[in-house]
Amino acid sequence: MCSDVYTVYRVVSRRQESEGGASLVLDGSLRADPGQFVMVWLPGIEERPLAVMNDRPLSLTIRDVGPFTHAMCRLQEGDRVWVRGPYGHGFDVRSRRMLLVGGGSGIASLTLLASRSLDEGREVRVALGARTSSQLMLGWRFDELGIPVLYATDDGTVGARGTTVDAIEPLLRAGWPDAVYACGPEPMMIALGRRLRGTDLPLYLSFERTMKCGFGVCGNCHLGDQLVCRDGPVFEGEKVLRVLDPLAE
């Protein structure tokens, strides 16, 4: 603790995540619930919310999309990051057979959920999607955990051509999952919500938003009357899709 605000960690190892992304393992733990996030500061650059990819040791996965994430992706062993949190409400896990659906950098919000749920004796399957194979992230982490992964890419370079919502269709038809947990681009989560509407499958969605405070004061991350940082980032699907999906009732 080097100020009242941040805990400083050093990068222990760095792993390239396909095209333009990286996973960083840090030199300490941070007890977090699956789905919670941290605010990460690089002095002189910026501070942004990032998912807790793993909590022991604290690990972060970043997709290079702007100045801050670019700098994060270029960190090397021994470099420092400043972390505050964890913040927010994570996933409410009650089901026995869990289907996880991730897209883009949102996949990093699902890895800790997967590992913790396996530890608790639950069954987990995962569908991961991206535009093209070179943009898929974190498949290795699910392989490491021994979790079967269904891949979907828009161009068919890996797995099925199409979306993750198409890829999970056989599992849904077979009645496999007790609940669905997702994080990814909002169009993906809206499509998932539409597919599951009318079924009794609980759907939990985790959102990524720009934030200033991270603890429910500034209002920057609002979604309707909800604050993503404080009430979320995980929400019951129905509750937020009412706001997001123009076709929802």
């Binding site: 009242d4 605000v5 605010m39 500061w41 910026e46 501070e47 942004r48 505050r84 200033k212 405070c213 991270g214 603890f215 004061v217 500034c218």
Partner: peptide
């Protein structure tokens, strides 16, 4: 960012 922080006895902000 950083723009809004908890510093131990309240907040400090420069939004």
């Amino acid at each position: 960012n950083p723009t809004v922080l908890q510093w131990g006895h309240g907040l400090i902000n420069a939004v």
